[in-house]
Simulated scan of single mutants.
Amino acid sequence: MYATLETLQLMTDAEDIAKMIITSELAAEYRRTHKELQQDLVAQEVISRFVKMKDKYEEVQRFGKYHPDYKETRKQMSEVKRELQLNDKISAFRKAEDDIQLLLDEISWTIAQSVSPSIKVPSSNPFFATSGGCGGCSTGGTCGCRTK
Rank of each mutant, 00 (worst) to 15 (best):
N125P: 04
E106K: 13
S138V: 10
L103M: 15
I22P: 05
A43C: 11
Q113N: 13
D40I: 00
E106P: 07
I17W: 01
R32E: 13
R31H: 08
E15D: 12
K120N: 13
Y30N: 10
R31P: 01
L102F: 09
D105I: 06
Q39A: 15
K52P: 02
G64D: 07
S124A: 10
K148D: 03
K71W: 02
A129D: 07
L104T: 13
E15F: 05
Q39G: 06
Y57S: 09
L8V: 09
V51D: 09
T12H: 03
C143H: 05
K89F: 05
H34F: 06
L86Q: 15
E83H: 03
Q44F: 02
L5H: 14
Y57H: 13
A112C: 00
V121M: 15
A43T: 11
V60R: 07
K35D: 10
F127Y: 14
T12G: 09
K71S: 14
M77T: 06
A43N: 11
N87I: 10
W109F: 15
T110G: 06
S123E: 02
L26D: 08
K95N: 11
R74F: 11
E97C: 00
M77D: 04
V46D: 03
V46G: 03
T73S: 13
G141I: 00
L104R: 14
T142K: 15
T33E: 10
G133T: 15
T12K: 10
C134M: 00
P68Q: 02
L102Q: 08
E45W: 07
K54I: 00
P117I: 04
I107Q: 00
G64H: 09
